[in-house]
Design a protein around this nucleic acid. Structure first.
Lengths: 230, 230
DNA sequence: CATACCCGTCAAGACCGCGTCAAGAATCCG
DNA sequence: CGGATTCTTGACGCGGTCTTGACGGGTATG
């Protein structure tokens, strides 16, 4: 059953969507502000997020960025503002679709189907992988220390974003362009020095021998690749 | 470079989009009706399709279904009809997004970025081909070692470009001019020594007996040909 | 049989991309 | 307000890649 998180500050919209979606066999959770949205998302691990941008406590775009740091669940944005600028900012921050209010429920449902269909094949991806002696749990945002009793490894938000983008595509080549666009945004597509900088940091924190990486691999001129162990 | 196919029956929209997209470093092809859209799509293998539903010769939804039969490239639908029903039909037929005219170019570009970003992450079904003892995965840019346990073979960007151009046309003769234009650009059309150089490298890395190639074949005076096994 | 053309091969220098170090700017936190 | 962390930006050396030229052998041609 598909798990959906709905974030909106208007109670009647929350009610209407919850009823509609439950009737169509979705598993629904709701949140009414940005802080509880981020909290619920990390605890509930939804397969899809429907997000209203007009939240009382924080900017909806920051909610998108917060979720995108560790999850690639599809995000469909609802918004009262039809301006082109708002759409561009939300989509570039990591949203998958943008629907302006008022919207038809049929349309929203169709867009939800399209989003989950596209995302569907890989929904059973393992969320925990081993890198060197470390255990990386993408969903729960944790990297265990190398040996039992060791402290956890701390990663900065940017490091997380970069690492999770690679780990979500095990064995695949991820182009420099794609990484830069995903982590820093489309206007940074040529700043390859960022990649050099942060890949080096990830290797230093995760690889047993950072100078000779075995799992965070460089493909010269093209991109980077995460190799799962065995 | 991202390859985009634009399908629309209005010449001025075609022109405007082509100029805009080329300026932003997209590789653009166009089609003005459904039949040529399907033909161009199968020959050109676009990474993204922008499709107007109002075509003169056939229903746009049938174009979606026709493409979806063999490709999972993202499809963004343009339409003058804002009705909820049209959107549902198009999205359920396999479209990824639906934009109603008139639309802002900024918004379309942002939606295109979102679609390719999403698609790249869950990239295509593996298109694998065997050459000698190696397994070549074009989509994931990976060449397995000859025997289990062997290290992967590493190809440089130029080698990849050349090899993928040949493999995309299995069994067909690809002219020298075509190869040079695709890999090095139009101004290198007569530098056949580049081809000699890099074909030799590919054979050395992939063919069991590089001096007597069995799958990367020279057609003297004409071009080269990739022969699929069996 | 001589010649011209095309292809495969080798070699060497120019050039580019990557890893690394370092330092200033911005931001977060107490 | 001050210290620490994180992000941004620049520079440099090295190794690999690309470019370019030259040579020899094979094949078609007259």
């Amino acid at each position: 059953m598909t798990k959906v998180l709905i974030v909106d500050d208007e109670p009647q919209i929350l009610r209407a969507l919850r009823i509609n979606l439950r009737a169509r066999d979705y598993d629904v959770e709701v949140a009414a502000d940005g802080a509880s949205a981020l909290r619920t998302a990390s605890a509930y691990h939804p397969d899809l997020i429907v997000l209203d941008l007009g939240l009382p406590d924080m900017d909806g775009v920051d909610v998108i960025r917060g979720v995108r740091g560790w999850s690639d669940a599809p995000i469909i944005v609802l918004s009262g503002r039809a301006g082109s600028g708002d759409k561009v900012v939300a989509l570039d921050a990591g949203a998958d679709d943008y629907v302006t209010k008022p919207f038809g429920v049929d349309e929203l449902l169709a867009r939800m189907r399209a989003a989950t269909r596209r995302h569907g094949a890989h929904s059973t991806r393992p969320t925990v992988v081993r890198i060197g002696a470390h255990t990386v749990d993408i969903a729960n945002h944790r990297v265990s220390g190398g040996h039992p009793g060791d402290q956890d490894v701390r990663l900065t938000p940017t490091e997380w974003h970069l690492l999770s983008t690679l780990v979500r595509n095990p064995g695949r080549l991820v182009s420099q362009r794609q990484l830069l666009q995903e982590v820093w945004g489309p206007q940074y597509e040529s700043e390859t020095n960022y990649l050099r900088q942060y890949m080096a940091q990830l290797r230093r924190k995760l690889e047993p021998d950072p100078a000779h990486p075995r799992q965070l691999i460089t493909e010269p001129g093209m991109g980077y690749r995460f190799l799962a162990p065995d």
